[in-house]
């Protein structure tokens, strides 16, 4: 724990993170006071169950944003992953144990390719991943324009598995996978050279180059990681939805970016924490939960609240970095 607080202090970027944590507590407390049945451990755990795929995608996004880049292709990559998985499993009867690694490989490979293009041709990540987004979305429809339901017993049994926790709570296997990814990301970012190079790259790319750091390798790696995370997110979504569909996760890239930013990562790169991203995902999930408990509001209010929050957090970032530089 001392390493953790130390890490926060050294980076001096913990203010937005603390704000997010406080926000989470306040929202949960307010919901508990307002609505009957809100104050329960299962409501919190459900946040994880419902948003495990988003958490994984947002973790990948955090790597990219920490370098100062952006990956707009994650939602489309996720949809493509659900599509490829459903198509191979259902229409070609491939075994899930082969399909899942294959899907992860496709995601990683396309992330690597985009990273390579971004680095080699010095093109804005925005443009390259936008192209990747259209490409992946389009590929979904070449497989099928319809939703493909998954009836494969392995997928179905994973989807239905519930693991009991003490206190009568239960979680899904996806939650465990997402938490493992979170742990791995934390270790990579804070305890490995790759992770530190990610931060250095986001701090000042020119400096990183002159300091002799492997800029090319790091840059390509973050897009590969993001590609892997979107594919894994896709696999988790098939466990959740039991279908592959080209219209899955439309706009998810924006949710992932929002979660990352609300979690305290600077959009300009170099500062932020992957644990903050997890809090950011929880905040987004909690907004949805509150609105569903409220009952009369349309679900689009989720978007409105997220938009408002995002604005507040970006202003907060601006103010806190402005003060540090002054």
């Amino acid at each position: 724990m001392s390493t953790l607080t130390d890490t926060f202090r050294r980076n001096g970027a913990s203010i937005p993170l603390l704000v997010t944590a406080a926000l989470l507590v306040i929202m949960f407390a307010a919901g508990s006071v307002q609505y009957e049945g809100f104050f329960s451990g299962q409501v919190l755990v459900n946040l994880l169950i419902d948003n495990a795929f988003l958490l994984v995608v947002a973790i990948g996004m955090t790597f990219v944003i920490l370098t100062g880049g952006i990956d707009l292709s994650v939602g489309a990559m996720l949809a493509l992953s659900t599509m490829v998985a459903a198509w191979l499993v259902e229409q070609h009867n491939w075994p899930p144990l082969l399909v899942i690694p294959l899907v992860l490989l496709i995601g990683t490979a396309s992330g690597t390719l985009m990273g390579w293009i971004i680095h080699t041709f010095e093109i804005q990540p925005f443009i390259v991943t936008l192209a990747g987004m259209f490409l992946a979305r389009g590929l979904c429809y070449t497989i099928s324009t319809e939703s493909i339901s998954i009836t494969d017993p392995t997928f179905v049994s994973i989807a239905q598995t519930r693991l009991s926790l003490p206190g009568g709570l239960f979680i899904s296997p996806s939650v465990i996978i997402a938490l493992l990814v979170l742990l791995a990301a934390f270790i990579v970012l804070h305890r490995t050279r790759l992770g530190r190079n990610v931060y250095a790259l986001g701090g000042n790319e020119q400096s990183a180059l002159l300091m002799g750091l492997p800029v090319a390798r790091t840059k390509i790696a973050v897009y590969a990681i993001s590609g892997f995370c979107s594919a894994l997110g896709g696999v988790l979504l098939t466990f959740y939805m039991l279908s592959g569909y080209g219209l899955h996760a439309v706009g998810l890239e924006l949710d992932a970016i929002a979660a990352t930013v609300i979690g305290g990562t600077l959009l300009t790169g170099g500062s932020g924490f992957v644990l903050g991203t997890a809090l950011g995902v929880m905040v987004l999930g909690l907004i949805q939960t509150v609105i569903s408990f409220q009952g009369t509001l349309s679900s689009w209010w989720t978007r409105i609240v997220i938009g408002g929050l995002l604005l507040v957090f970006i202003l907060l970032q601006r103010l806190s970095t402005g003060r540090r530089r002054a």
């Binding site: 390493t3 130390d6 050294r10 980076n11 970027a13 270790i187 804070h190 305890r191 490995t192 050279r193 530190r196 190079n197 931060y199 250095a200 986001g202 701090g203 000042n204 020119q206 400096s207 990183a208 002159l210 300091m211 002799g212 750091l213 170099g270 500062s271």
Partner: peptide, 30 residues
């Protein structure tokens, strides 16, 4: 150089040693 080519977001210690961090079991030994 005149313009300092370091990373402002990292700590002084990291700026001195980044790329050559001491490691233990493959992990950076803070």
């Amino acid at each position: 150089y005149q313009e300092v080519n370091l990373c402002p977001n990292l700590s002084v210690a990291e700026n001195i040693l980044i790329g050559r961090e001491p490691r233990r079991f493959g992990m950076i030994h803070w």
